[in-house]
């Protein structure tokens, strides 16, 4: 499998086929005397920022921290062992509602979009 070509940047869907995001990052575990093992995919603006470089990565992290009110934030991760299907989309056996990936969309719904009549 070609990781950069076939995994990175692909659409991620959950078990209900809800579009969660794209594979913004790919994390491997370095092991002693054994080949690196893919352990998770990363999603979100911090992961994207880091791909553009260290500085944009720090900006993104600072911005997310500011917006979310937390002191430090990390990219969202989905464990690789949840992967169910690798095709044009990559399906994970998770339910996005039980993760924090859509926290910002939820916030937006509650505080902005939901307050406009007719939403």
């Amino acid at each position: 499998m070609q990781l950069l070509r076939d995994i990175l940047d692909k659409q991620v869907v959950d078990r209900e086929q809800v579009k969660i995001g794209k594979v913004d990052g790919l994390v491997a575990e370095l092991r002693q005397a054994k080949p690196p093992r893919v352990i998770a995919v990363e999603l979100g603006s911090i992961a994207l920022g880091r791909r553009l470089g260290a500085v944009p990565g720090r900006w993104a992290a600072r911005l997310v921290a500011r917006l979310s009110g937390k002191r430090q934030t990390r990219p969202h991760r989905i464990a690789w062992n949840k992967v169910r299907d690798i095709g044009v989309d990559i399906e994970f056996d998770i339910d996005v509602r039980q993760t924090k990936i859509f926290a910002w969309q939820d916030w937006l719904r509650e505080h902005v979009i939901g307050r406009i009549p007719g939403a």
Partner: peptide, 11 residues
Amino acid sequence: MATVNLDHLAG
């Protein structure tokens, strides 16, 4: 556990 971002290796 040491981890590394493979995407950062691209290019």
